[in-house]
Design a protein around this nucleic acid. Structure first.
Lengths: 222, 222
DNA sequence: TAACTTCTTTATAAATTCTTCAACTTCTCT
DNA sequence: AGAGAAGTTGAAGAATTTATAAAGAAGTTA
């Protein structure tokens, strides 16, 4: 899961990143208005943390921009100003939630989790594909009702596949989503993770749902 | 065990917190209607103390909201109004118990303990997992019917595991549940508690039910 | 206050996973 | 068919995470 943190106070953004990383999120930071717009234009995020007061422009304008581009899904506003106005404006513009500084990182993390849950929620708590089911709350994967032990990267990879099934996903998109933007150059090691995940799934008695699409990437389907 | 106290009178909430803390509960306070709703949405509590008259809305609406979200389990209403109406409405809406102000903290504590017991124990008084049984009333643990002496943190840790068995629990989640939300930064000392608990359990002749899930946390299961 | 217990910190060792690398296979295009 | 690019695989070293022991800090009890 990938999160964009739009925040100029370096101390704060760093401690947010540290905490969210320990919860297995991939984080990117944008410290100015322009950088933030660039990022949101180029990439998709599962959740965006938005500080209203950033250099170069207003966070509320970023919200408007996101709305215009139909990317306004999963925004959590964080702001020092505890004014009701900001909160109302933000939520009216379509933000999902609002958190005033200072806050506990565990609370932030819980809110992020709630936003992502809400976003992917389709009635039941389990993500399913054929005989695979993923309990994201318990972080448990099972195949044919038998538990399957996956490493972090394998788990995140499978999650990405299941939430993007039936469409072709490029190697770069995978790198982008699982490792973030600090991953320049070679990303061939993804092959290794694909291989390991395939092996575990087939050992569990699965057909190979991870189809290679030569020159394009992978597609998760029957 | 984690308790949410929904109460706007600061003096009262503080003395409740002080008392319950001394009984090893982890406490959080919400002083308004909105804060209360937020907290209940974000976190799970073992017990919720609910004052009916809080600023920003009615405690009864919080009850309705909890009911709608299937989180209505373990609510103790505390209220100055000693009206029969409120009591009936509250209990009809599904609260577990009702306590009129003023009350003795020891009585509150006893009722909280009773609610938590009722919540976790299906029929009999003991919380059990395999050959481990926990008497939460007496705070006694036994393995194969022999008493096992645990320190407070070890006891709370085991309790957390037993009540959350078969799901992966992150180190952060443990920190939050046993130490509260003011526990940022390093929490590696949890390793030590895990080690000590494991040792005591294995000395008592137990298999190691505390499975490490590399990079994700721990899982309590056979 | 002293004796004792428990909790937290620190340092080091062990275990697991991630990434790199190289040899090999498959695919596409001319 | 052959060349080159893309993908697969297994085995290794690097990096990260967890386990353990031992000592210091904090809290309890008498």
């Amino acid at each position: 899961m990938k999160i964009l943190i739009i925040e100029d106070e370096k101390d704060l953004s760093e401690s947010i990143v540290a905490y969210l990383k320990s919860e297995e999120y991939v984080c990117e930071v944008a410290s100015t208005y322009n950088k933030a717009l660039e990022k949101t234009e180029l990439y998709d995020y599962d959740c965006i943390l938005l500080d209203i007061t950033i250099p170069g422009g207003s966070g509320l304008d970023i919200l408007r921009e996101l709305k215009a581009n139909n990317k306004l899904d999963g925004v959590l506003i964080i702001s020092a100003r505890n004014s009701l106005d900001d909160k109302i404006t933000g939520l009216t513009l379509g933000a999902d939630d609002y958190l005033s500084k200072p806050f506990h990182l565990s609370e932030l993390s819980a809110r992020v989790a709630a936003i992502i849950r809400r976003k992917n929620f389709d009635g039941n708590d389990l993500l399913k594909f054929q005989n695979i089911s993923i309990d994201t709350r318990a972080k448990l994967v099972s195949v044919n009702n038998k538990p399957l032990e996956l490493t972090r990267k394998e788990y995140e990879l499978l999650l990405y596949f299941v939430t993007n099934k039936k469409r072709v996903i490029s190697k770069n998109a995978i790198a982008e989503h699982l490792w973030g933007d600090n991953m320049e150059g070679n990303n061939d090691f993804i092959y290794t993770h694909i291989k390991n995940l395939r092996k575990k799934l087939s050992d569990a008695g699965d057909a190979d749902y991870i189809k290679s699409v030569y020159g394009m990437g992978y597609k998760f389907s029957e």
